[in-house]
Design a protein around this nucleic acid. Structure first.
Length: 623
DNA sequence: GGAATCATCT
């Protein structure tokens, strides 16, 4: 109070005089306005309000607009301010004014969770929503995915005759879109008496979100046919549909359309969506050209480049872009770091991975799902399985990705028992395994020769977890049986498959033929494989190895010749290894590396070791 | 009232 009295405020200064004399002060209107404007807090407004309440007719409307400036939607406003605002409503003269103030309050708080309570209070008082109220409240429902409350608002909008308003419809569509109920979005859209660009964009976005990229594209062209010009936001969602489809010609076509619209082209959102589209459609060069020409770039632009390159398998290039990003002093965010960790996993760059880990700790970046899981994966793939396990154990919130990364990590590092132990912890943690988890579990069993255990888990997939085994899982089972020497059982297994066996399944059987020297069966399987994947060399190589193992050199040579005639080249075996923080990458036949011979020996030893543990095929290593 | 980037796989 004392602090407050020190402030220069004409009315409050005069209040001293008022307190000491018997006559109320006369306050000119301009002074009043000035005083109100200079109020810095709810408390000051309340005092001003108290002082003026007896001397002037209520200035509630003015006070109302002032109090709104203290309601900050981004931070939670003080309960004092909000409660005062709610009290003020009772002093407003007409229901119309009351509704207006409720609308302003709701709009100011639209990103907080208090909105629904305010709305209910308003309706309870007999003040009914209009075409502004419903969209504001719905926006808050969408933010909190409050489906049930959204349904109630939907019902209210019908009850109060607001449901044909395009704003109301669009925000309703948006609510159902974020809740993932595309059916409702579509129904609302179809029933709309009026549709604008936002309606179309919301519909397209809903399709994209639920993975119906083709429907999204169809809707986009329908929109164009309805003579509506897309704007930035529409283009961004349409481009993301192209990304999902991986359809380069479609994406390019839409890009060409954008070129017609000038101001859209320089938009950073559109630019980022284009970079992402070219990357996901496999055209890294166009993505890079676009990226370099972008007049404005933000962290998302860089992330799109880096993670795009990672998805393309261009890990080194991804790390170069990351270095450039650091060069211009742009701070990486968690998306950047996930992509960088992913590149580290694939290149075996343990040192950089550790650096990222330290960076995360130092900058107190929340080790949320993505980051934690990427760290587990990075350590596991770089062979630091105990570090991976440490991160995993330290994670507060583990999801199915965390468990799967750890299971696959243990399996890869030859620790089948520990992989299965982690798997057995999942039910207690309330995490349901998914299809990929079972790939990890089955491959752990396969590499450890745990036939019965593997069989049991395979059966549990559908029996306990209601997951339909896919070709990957059949492939794992064939691998499991084949490695254990149960070749005819593996064959029978394939015969009884309810789905069409693919290259992985046949490949697993061919691998078993190699281990157990089954030449004739190998020949049959190879034909199957070649029929499925004529352009791939894997089957030929495996088969020629089978011939060589059986000392049938002539056949082996014949096969290699056939490969040459078909202009097939053996994909160069590529491997990388980190020694003293330096990553050495090798290709078969590469003599350029100064320390090649030394490392070649090391790799050969590793290859033998890993092969003995059944973990890696020879073709991954230089022999 | 509507927009972009990130994770587990034989």
């Amino acid at each position: 109070m004392l602090k407050f009295l020190k402030m220069e405020n004409p009315i409050i200064s005069s209040s001293k005089a008022f307190n000491s004399s018997n006559s109320p002060p006369k306050i000119p209107h301009t002074n009043y306005i000035h005083s109100l404007e200079s109020c810095q807090s709810t408390r000051e407004i309340k005092q001003l309000h108290a002082l003026t309440i007896k001397t002037r007719p209520l200035q509630t409307q003015l006070i109302c607009s002032k109090i709104l400036s203290f309601l900050n939607p981004s931070s939670s406003s003080s309960p004092e301010t909000l409660n005062y605002a709610r009290e003020l409503i009772n002093h407003l003269d007409t229901p119309d004014l009351q509704l207006q103030f409720y609308n302003s309050l709701i709009q100011a708080l639209s990103s907080s969770s208090q909105v629904m309570a305010l709305y209910k209070e308003m309706v309870t008082k007999g003040i009914y929503p209009d075409t502004y109220t419903i969209p504001f409240v719905l926006k808050s429902c969408a933010k909190f995915r409050a489906f049930e409350e959204g349904r109630q608002l939907h019902a209210h909008s019908v009850k109060f005759g607001l449901s044909s308003n395009v704003y109301v419809l669009n925000t309703l569509m948006r609510l159902y879109a974020v809740c993932g109920i595309t059916q409702y979005v579509k129904e609302l859209f179809d029933q709309s008496p009026e549709r604008d660009l936002v309606s179309w964009t919301t519909l397209i976005q809903a399709f994209v979100k639920m993975g119906f990229a083709k429907e999204a594209i169809r809707a986009y062209f329908d929109m164009c046919r309805a003579n509506l010009q897309p704007d930035k936001r529409t283009l961004v969602v349409v481009l993301s549909a192209c990304s999902r489809l991986g359809d380069l010609s479609l994406g390019t076509r839409i890009h060409e359309n954008i070129c017609d619209v000038h101001d859209v082209y320089s938009d950073v959102f559109v630019g980022n969506a284009l970079v992402d589209m070219y990357m996901k459609c496999g055209d890294a060069d166009s993505a890079r050209q676009l990226f370099e020409k972008m007049p404005v770039k933000n962290v998302v632009s860089w992330n799109s480049m880096i993670s795009g390159l990672v998805q393309q398998g261009q890990f080194k290039e991804a790390l170069h872009v990351f270095r450039d990003m650091q060069g211009i002093g742009l701070r990486p965010d968690s998306v950047t770091l996930v992509a960088v960790l992913n590149a580290c996993s694939n290149l075996g760059k343990l040192e950089l991975g550790k650096w990222v880990h330290a960076y995360i700790d130092k900058n107190r970046i929340k080790a949320d799902g993505f980051i934690g899981n990427a760290l587990v994966d990075m350590y596991a793939k770089c062979g630091s399985i105990e570090q991976a396990f440490g991160v995993f154990r330290g994670m507060e919130c583990k999801d199915v990705f965390s468990y799967t990364a750890m299971i696959v990590g243990f399996a890869m590092n030859g620790e089948a028992e520990r992989a299965l132990e982690i798997f057995s912890e999942m039910p207690a943690a309330g995490i349901k395994p998914d299809e990929v988890t079972f790939v990890g579990v089955l491959s752990a069993c396969s590499h450890a020769g745990m036939v019965e255990e593997g069989r049991r888990h395979f059966e549990d997939m559908s029996r306990v977890y209601n997951l339909e085994p896919q070709t990957e899982h059949y492939g794992c089972m064939v691998d499991l049986l084949g490695r254990a020497g149960l070749i005819s059982e593996a064959e029978e297994f394939i015969t009884n498959m309810p789905i069409e066996p693919d290259a992985f399944v046949w490949g697993a059987l061919l691998g078993a033929c190699k281990i157990h020297g089954k030449v004739e069966l190998g020949e049959t399987v190879m034909k199957r494989l070649v029929a499925i994947e004529p352009e791939r060399d894997g089957a030929y190589i495996l088969m020629s190895n089978i011939y060589s193992s059986a000392n049938r050199w002539k056949d082996a040579i014949k096969l290699r010749k056939a490969m040459k005639e078909r202009k097939m080249k053996k994909a160069p075996g590529c491997s990388s290894i980190e020694v003293n923080g330096v990553v050495h990458e090798f290709r078969k036949g590469d003599k350029s590396h100064p320390r090649n011979e030394e490392l070649r020996k090391l790799l050969a030893e590793m290859a033998i070791h890993l092969q003995n543990h059944g973990q890696l095929p020879t073709s991954n290593f230089i022999t």
